[in-house]
């Protein structure tokens, strides 16, 4: 009669470059419903951070409100965290990123948190190319408040206790592409092999990186006539191609037949290998990504994988030319340089 995680771990468990085991990146035991897609995404985040050997103190996880927004409690228990207000996570990240540009910002949100109440915040963060990873755990409903349709519920999709949705759904990938996001991907909580490298690439990407992850809600929206169920998603998946992520530290081994792989080098030196790419899909081209999304939608398929990225984008700090040193490390001397400096500024404005 216990629901505690035993302390023992497998002696062969992998240890990363920092000497940490995966358990060092875990959080509290999840209280979400058993089988919730969100837990799988948490698991993928744990794996990605462990494999990237991220020092836990270098990462901040932020969220809004929802089951998805509760999820950060269940991973990276040794990192910074901020559980903010419904839909307001992007502003909190913006503030934090302005104050300390050295941290890795991982925003976790739901489809309700993002596509309804937080929509205004979301598009502006994307538009400003805020340097963060933005993961949407997308279950097509408001899980926490008992499963009402969200704005990403597909037209005609029906949740367990609801009616078919009469409205057009919002495609967060398409929307963020339109407003200027510089890394856009979609995945499925049940496809860890795809999701883990995507998260790693998103963390390495400089700029706003959206991963919209279909994440079935087992309790309210995993029924036969829902388009966000495990079965429906699996049956309708179509992937843009396969992606490997090779961190800078690792030597690139020639695993790919010549000509079969497309390499993209990120600003930190890590490399994304894209192979088995679908016809006409070029993830370096925004128009191609938008077309592919639209085509898939017409075919009734869910396009997953890396959709678009701009490895050379300018993130918010660069765009507005902030100082290199994080604001929170500047002292009074730098922030209040004294009367003579003020007089000079004033004089320059006359």
């Amino acid at each position: 009669m216990s629901y505690e995680r035993p302390k023992f771990r497998h002696p062969n468990t992998e240890i990363n470059d920092l000497g940490y085991a995966r358990q060092d990146y875990e959080g509290a035991l999840s209280t979400l419903c058993a089988g919730c897609g969100h837990d799988s995404i948490s698991g993928a985040i744990v794996r990605a951070c462990h494999e990237l050997s991220i020092e836990p103190y270098r990462l901040a996880k932020l969220s809004g409100i929802g089951c998805s927004s509760k999820a950060p409690t269940y991973f990276l228990g040794n990192s910074h965290g901020f559980n903010s207000v419904h839909g307001r996570m992007p502003s909190v990240v913006t503030g934090a990123a302005m104050a300390n540009r050295d941290l890795i910002y991982l925003g976790v949100s739901g489809d309700g948190d993002t596509a309804s109440i937080g929509m205004g915040q979301f598009v502006h963060a994307a538009r400003r190319n805020l340097n963060m990873v933005y993961i949407v755990m997308n279950n097509g409903c408001y899980g926490l408040t008992k499963g009402q349709d969200s704005a990403t519920a597909d037209e005609g999709s029906r949740s367990k206790k609801g009616d078919p949705s009469p409205f057009e759904s919002i495609d967060l990938c398409a929307l963020s592409l339109q407003v200027g996001a510089t890394f856009v991907a979609r995945s499925f909580s049940g496809d860890r092999d795809q999701l883990v490298p995507l998260i790693k690439a998103a963390i390495s990407h400089r700029g706003f990186a959206l991963i919209d992850v279909v994440s079935p809600c087992v309790t309210f929206n995993n029924n036969a006539d829902s388009t966000k169920s495990y079965d429906f998603t699996r049956e309708h998946l179509k992937s843009t191609g396969t992606m490997d992520f090779v961190p800078m530290r690792e030597e690139i081994t020639a695993r790919y037949a010549p000509g079969s792989s497309h390499e993209v080098t990120l600003h930190d030196g890590s490399v994304i290998h894209l192979y088995k790419m679908g016809k006409g899909i070029d993830p370096l081209n925004r128009v191609s990504a938008l077309n592919a999304l639209e085509e898939c939608k017409q075919e009734g398929r869910i396009l997953t994988g890396l959709l678009y990225m701009d490895p050379d984008s300018k993130e918010l700090h660069e765009a507005i030319g902030t100082v290199k040193r994080p604001l929170n490390q500047l002292t009074e001397r730098e922030l209040c340089p004294g009367n003579s400096v003020l007089q000079n500024i004033n004089a320059s404005l006359r």
Binding site: R5, P6, K7, F8, R9, H10, N12, T13, R22, Q23, L29, S30, A34, G35, C36, G37, D39, S40, S42, G43, V46, S189, G190, R192, P216, V218, N222, Y230, D231, R234
Partner: peptide, 15 residues
Amino acid sequence: CIECDACIDICPTDC
């Protein structure tokens, strides 16, 4: 099994 992976993540000893 619906292949949700929950068991994989929860298992303390990666079985």
